[in-house]
Nucleic acid binder design. Structure first.
Ligand SMILES: [Mn+2]
Ligand SMILES: [Mn+2]
Ligand SMILES: [Mn+2]
Ligand SMILES: [Mn+2]
Lengths: 231, 231
DNA sequence: TCCTTTTGTTAGATTAGACTAACATTAATA
DNA sequence: TATTAATGTTAGTCTAATCTAACAAAAGGA
């Protein structure tokens, strides 16, 4: 079986999703869904018919053959996979993520698809880790946009991440939003609080800090969100 | 300026990289680089000339105009960006990563490109975090492939991650490779060691464990690599 | 310099995928 | 049921991108 062109894959994909939504697919639905003219659809259908991927008799409904359904499902799965990567992980808005996914779904090797699957599964495996990771990334993106406007964030600042073991600082502000910020505040890390860095473990490990007599563990990423001034 | 087709973008990109490598670009080099015939190249060059993206006189060398260089550079940057994502972060081998990057580089919205840039920068910002993250993902991928062969990993096993606070287990094996494994072994976590889980913090935080009288912090991801049996 | 090899160009064909205009069939409804 | 509206099809055109075969120019070597 010869490889299908991107265009033909999109036709199959459209027939698949329309068949799920409504019961059957019709020429005008496909045309609408793909924003092409009906003659373009008819032309594509003839090619797909030739390749035994659809069943279609003149003026009748359109159905996928087993072979066609197999391929259509695959395209649809790739679409969804890429959508998840773009939307859920990279945080791209649904409309754009879906458009981009549908364009590149035809161009990736099976190796790459597999890896993306694994990458998503890797994060999925630990929902907490994923939530943490994606929210940190979101903060990072928002922080960047913020900095565009700010220009000078307040020159003399340094962050908890910049302290050396033993050094102290006083909290000015906690950057970031949502869970992260809330959690830090709950831990007693509010503006004015004095913090001493105890130790930093190597490779992805937490930093150990002393606040109000208590030991706390923070991730390095979090430490970078805590702005300090000299004590 | 009308949008360029993927094909024309590839011609620009080829001219750009050839011009950097050698001093000038010639028809046969472009043909070789893109694996097309020389008449195909000539045809494309005429189109690019029409659009003021290259300078070219019959039988002479090919140069990019300022406008052409701008576009070529952009395509090349996107190519490199996507290559980094696929190769460095997802761990796809260079050959495939490059091919796939060159296919999809023409199809992504500027929003998506921007986000991928930010994602890479996000990991780049903290080399340790990145090393940890990518090595964990690598382990995850390798573990998956391993399980294909293994089939039954040894039925009664559970991992450190499965313990509840207060519960104990005895180390059977440490999965994963490289840094991670070495570090765990250095910490005294070897087969036969008895471990007690003390507490698990919410949201991306470490698990606190007691080994040989010492407290240690591990990330949840790491905890899942430590296979235990009942004490 | 003149012949040969390398490189570039032209001409013409092919394929895929879109379009519009015109026509055919089927479905809806008066 | 007869007409109209909606839907589908055919025919013919266009553009982009490729190819092969044949020819032309430039470069290199005897
Ligand atoms: Mn698509
Ligand atoms: Mn799609
Ligand atoms: Mn390309
Ligand atoms: Mn490229």
């Amino acid at each position: 079986m010869e490889a299908l062109t991107p265009s033909l894959e999109d036709y199959l994909e459209a027939i698949w999703t329309i068949s799920l939504r409504d019961k059957v697919a019709r020429v005008k639905d496909i045309a609408k869904s793909l924003r092409v003219s009906t003659p373009s659809v008819v032309n594509a259908l003839n090619v797909l018919l030739e390749k035994n991927l659809i069943k279609h008799e003149r003026y009748g409904y359109i159905e996928l053959t087993d072979q066609g359904a197999l391929k259509a499902k695959e395209v649809d799965e790739h679409h969804k996979l890429l959508f998840t990567l773009l939307n859920e992980i990279f945080g791209i808005n649904a409309g754009i993520a879906s458009k981009d996914a549908c364009k590149i779904e035809h161009h990736l090797s099976k190796e790459t698809i597999k890896r993306i699957e694994q990458f998503i599964q890797f994060l999925e495996e630990d929902q907490e880790e994923k939530a943490f990771f994606t929210s940190r990334f979101k903060d990072f993106v928002e922080k960047g946009e913020e900095d565009m406007g700010d220009k000078k964030v307040s020159k003399a600042d340094f962050t908890l991440r910049d302290l050396k073991p033993g050094e102290k600082g006083k909290v000015i502000k906690i950057k970031g939003k949502g869970n992260l910020k809330k959690r830090l505040l709950d831990m007693g890390i509010v503006p004015g609080t004095e913090i001493q860095l105890k130790k930093v473990a190597p490779l992805g490990d937490p930093v150990d800090i002393l606040v109000k007599g208590y030991h706390l563990s923070l991730r390095k990423g979090e430490a970078r969100d805590i702005l300090l001034e000299k004590v």
